[in-house]
Design a protein around this nucleic acid. Structure first.
Lengths: 344, 344
DNA sequence: TTGTATGCGTTATCAT
DNA sequence: ATGATAACGCATACAA
């Protein structure tokens, strides 16, 4: 007779046969009723649904997966242990995926290729329907290692370096340019740019965009070349000293991050220059703990990371369903106006 | 035809029958060889393993789950969308779980009980082996809604309010007391405490611990009652004005968070008081962006959130395996010494 | 309109 | 020491 059940319904959760029995129909009919497939009398459908409700039936994912070949799980590979950038992306993704009743499997690689490979194998073993990849910087990253064919991949925030891969990215250039134009609109005519490491794409892209938005080096609005340094408040403070020595008539500074901008504001205040009265300042990130704690609060570029995650997840769903997806999607940024440019 | 590593697997992942066929054994034997169960000749085991390697075989999670009733997945319910506290907890958990080849399913409730219920149903449908619950505050939270019986739950950081539930928490009291004793050890004798909302457990618990560590209100070391307010830098700055007016001879301030401590340092400097020369200051959190950016950098209590997550995950694994777990585990904190108490 | 049978991939049990 | 088989829960093709 039946070999002793090795495990299985150990939890005693109701199965579809239980629902069927309670409703007085066959399991196949119950399945059709619950999934809206086949041709059933409304009365039957109702009876089955009632039975399912009564038992608190939830279809077993494993059976479903085995049968359909789909796991309804998306793997997320992140290299950003700290999570300042990844987390909003993740939340956006969770939001979009939860709607399609997909779940999110979290894999942190800590920037270790070995760990990444390990996680990829595990995701493969679980037959995930798709993979979302995210990271801490906006510089392109090497593509994932070999995957089971047919598993779609979407990169969010940090794009893939391989042409043909699908990436959703922030608008580094557009956001920085908008901040610069905002200062121009306010009538500022001696504007400098202070940002992070020259080697970081987000620093160089923003810097170039600012230079261009201000009419280039020849237009006379730019107060010298962009200054590159650390992504820290301290660098912002130092940069102010450098700038004021060279350009005493400075009346605007666009910064590459809120941290830098906060340092800039602090130092300006210490030197007796009013913000924004004497010098208007902008940041990038809209990182509340910086932008709101700054004195004054910062006008800054919101890169809309959550929207990046949401968009990436939607594209991934599209790809899972077999729909074509664009190679590159840029999420527009948004300028958040606060006292560092508008006064109190 | 010889299925080359690329050829045979091109459509669909290799199954255990493929491995068995290649090794010239039955599927059951292949299974035993790969799982180390049963009695097999070493030679057979080797042959099967070689075949599995050659095909790049990874057992299908769905089949496994169906057969065993275990999903090898742990669900994580978090209410902390912002993630400052949750994220380290999550990383620690992922670390511990990854070792036991468990995966982590992420569910963000955004503090919405409806969403929480929804996620619980989905986790039940996936037959998760266990559930980790975490949140943004250290105040006890209401227990989870009804679950499938036998699914263990461990609360991390934010404990459950229901006796008998398993919780892993930070040492609010111990950490704060250690900071206070540190100031005593440095010879400070007029010490105040500034912290966040009185209603927050982390504020009140830390405040009480500081009072006790300083010998209580009667010992003369305490500079007035603890001051409760916002968890912000601005409150830290305001509090300094209040304190100095009442206690001009103040020589130490323990703060309830790094944000408050940073505000305190800023205001003291603005008023011409040197830190730590005139007044030594401590924080809580060891949140780098605050503790290191502060002038001077903060001596602060590291609550070791990652260890909280790691411990919680280990306990959850124990519970999944049926081992008994303690109801309450307190992770010891650690004092991180920096210039705000030690000088430059 | 509903019921029956089958198979997804794995592994434990029993038979050889 | 190895092979054959059944069963986990679900959804579908087909039969009635």
């Amino acid at each position: 007779m039946a070999a002793g059940p090795g495990g299985g319904a150990s939890r005693g959760a109701p199965r579809i046969v239980d629902v069927a029995a309670l409703a007085g129909v066959s399991p196949g009919t119950a399945s059709k009723a619950l999934n809206g497939t086949g041709q059933l009398r409304q009365q039957t459908v109702d009876r089955v649904r009632a039975a399912a409700d009564q038992l608190g039936f939830t279809p077993d994912g494993a059976g479903r997966t085995l049968r359909s070949g789909r796991s309804f799980i998306v793997g997320v590979i992140t290299t950003d242990s700290v999570g300042r950038f990844t987390l909003p992306v993740l939340l956006g993704a969770e939001d979009a995926l939860g709607a399609g009743d997909m779940a999110l499997l979290l894999c942190d690689t800590r920037d270790d290729p070995v760990r990444e490979q390990h996680h990829l194998r595990k995701l493969a073993a679980r037959r995930v329907d798709g993979i979302l990849v995210t990271g801490r910087r906006t510089d392109p990253r090497p593509p994932l290692g070999p995957l089971a064919p047919g598993v779609p991949v979407v990169h969010a925030f940090q794009p893939s370096a391989r042409p043909g891969d699908t990436s959703v990215v922030v608008d580094d250039a557009g956001g920085a340019a908008e901040a610069a134009r905002h200062l121009l609109d306010l009538g500022r005519r001696r504007i400098a740019h202070v940002t992070g490491w020259r080697e970081h794409h987000s620093a160089s892209a923003r810097a170039s965009a600012v230079v261009e938005a201000l009419g280039g080096p020849g237009a006379g609005v730019l107060a010298g070349e962009p200054l590159f340094g650390e992504w820290t408040e301290q660098w912002g403070r130092q940069a102010v000293d450098v700038l004021l020595a060279r350009h005493p008539d400075l009346d605007g500074i666009t910064c590459g991050s809120d941290q830098v901008a906060r340092g800039v504001c602090d130092r300006l205040r210490e030197l007796g220059r009013s913000v924004p009265g004497d010098v208007a300042v902008t940041g990038v990130d809209d990182w509340e703990v910086m932008a709101l704690a700054s004195r004054p609060p910062l006008t800054t570029v919101d890169l809309r990371l959550q929207e990046v995650g949401r968009t990436a997840a939607r594209l991934l769903l599209d790809a899972v369903e077999g729909r074509p997806v664009p190679e590159r999607t840029v999420v527009p940024s948004r300028l958040v106006l606060r006292a560092s440019t508008l006064g109190a």
